[in-house]
Design a protein around this nucleic acid. Sequence first.
DNA 1: CTGTTAGCGCTTTCAC
DNA 2: GTGAAAGCGCTAACAG
Lengths: 330, 330
Amino acid sequence: MVTMVDVARLAHVSTSTVSHVLNGTRPVEEATRRRVVEAIARTGYHQDAVARALRRARTDSIGLVVSDASEPAFAEMVHGVEQTADTHRMTLLLANSGEDPDRELRAVRTLLGRRVDGLILARCPASAPSVIHSIVDAQVPAVLLDRLYDDTPFDQVSADNRESMRRLVAHQLERGHRRLLLVAGDTRVPTMRERCDGFLDATADCRPDQVILEGRDPAERAAGLREALRTGSVSCVVAASTPLAVDALEAIRDQGLLIPGDIAFATFDGFAHSDLFKPAITTVRQPAFEMGSAAVNMLLERLRTPAGAPRMLRLRQTIELRSSTEDHLR
Amino acid sequence: MVTMVDVARLAHVSTSTVSHVLNGTRPVEEATRRRVVEAIARTGYHQDAVARALRRARTDSIGLVVSDASEPAFAEMVHGVEQTADTHRMTLLLANSGEDPDRELRAVRTLLGRRVDGLILARCPASAPSVIHSIVDAQVPAVLLDRLYDDTPFDQVSADNRESMRRLVAHQLERGHRRLLLVAGDTRVPTMRERCDGFLDATADCRPDQVILEGRDPAERAAGLREALRTGSVSCVVAASTPLAVDALEAIRDQGLLIPGDIAFATFDGFAHSDLFKPAITTVRQPAFEMGSAAVNMLLERLRTPAGAPRMLRLRQTIELRSSTEDHLR
DNA sequence: CTGTTAGCGCTTTCAC
DNA sequence: GTGAAAGCGCTAACAG
């Protein structure tokens, strides 16, 4: 392996000069500089980021732990994080907890051990408190992404889930729906909790018939859906996330019901290219890429100014109205 | 920061004993071991992976460079890579070239500088030859994923694109289609080239009317599609990837044509949850997750036994037949 | 079974 | 404007 020593020898300078040429950390006479650059080219030298990191005590890298890389919304966030990190010449270390608290803790510890300069975290339900302690102990800045918690000393980035759901449901109420079903999912997940609260906000006044289907077990959910749909006590279904929407759509299809003819339907996060397919589904869309991007920016800002109270950023979601909620079109 | 020296002092042993306890690299008397473990707990010590990597000259990490993280197929591959890397206690460094050769080269160099133990690469079109040179020079094992090249000394993992396309198109010919349109996309990308070749294989014998729409410019593609569809000279459209399918579906919709009534349609890679939406699209599905997984396994194997000829692995794709090609259902 | 010690390749004082 | 040298925290001979 070719090291700075080889370059220095060839250029008849010290390693410190090579280092300063490489990093532009102090003035170097043009002639010297040129000899060094030349020597680097001849030897094919490349800086060793590991040694550099050890010496400088920073790695120019950030760690990202997501709870479920297979969900499109998270994939987009990962993309946003990668892109923005790259812009700032930071390398991304990616880990996936798969919604498993143990794996999450292991991932966080691994990344801390690798001395990432900062950490971005979409925590999983039942996330261990030691995750937070580990990060605090390591004195590494972190930002929580999407899944927000009250009790943390960290910056946070999320979307206006509660308000978006309130508006979505309010709209359905305006259209005259009085028998609503919310497929709420695992409300231990803050995002889901917020969406659920938004639903309650919307229905608080006019108090329509409503069923809220909580719980994380898909089989149980399917049964609940079947039951609710069969009795015909529902005119509008709202799913709080894509996987929940899949379950709901399957149940609706299996029940032989038509959207929007028999039942109105809307979801959060949704599906790609909804405009190309039927039913075209009304969707509350997260600015997932931007959320990832914002998380990186917050992290880098915090790296510059470690002091100060934790910040919280809520990005606006957009409601894409489509024919699945246009039941007069039937 | 607490280091091994602190632990050693507290446990009244040398740092080498601490190291050996930590890594299990030599027998340590039970009483000593316990003292060390105790001291580690008391101090809250965590191994510094950076220092360790520098000393051992391996990082227990692998680098992944994908060409477009926003395509679902790639997102799945990333997921497969992450999962499998994690199983082997390897950390994943992720970079995204965004189909830009310069960014790709930069990403590869960055990852090599970080001394990844191996590299997985989905190269972009017009990928620079220096990408390969850099990797060879660094003597880092690599495996090419999805996008395959003849001229490389690396292991490769892909799918049987050519054969799958041949079968897909043969099926359409059997159904009586004689006016075919292939939306082939950027055939500089090997994957696209292979799919295109499979199309030619299938039509070689019976020589139906066929149009092959190549090119990477979306606007140009849209114009070509409009033209081909307007003249009514097409009874079956095949798209070679998801983005191409999007363009095609938009054109078909804008032309007021119905699938499968007016026109049969099939695509590669496709959309998530195709069974929930209309038109339900016949799709050749890549085992994307498995491809990522296989790439990691090949890489680790190569790490163990660096010698030997490059291997090539082709995973089987599956053809999911749906109603978009069932034109008798009209 | 355990300790001493020489670095891994780099950055950064400090001195000239 | 440049160089000498001291480590960053760890592993792995080597020696006992």
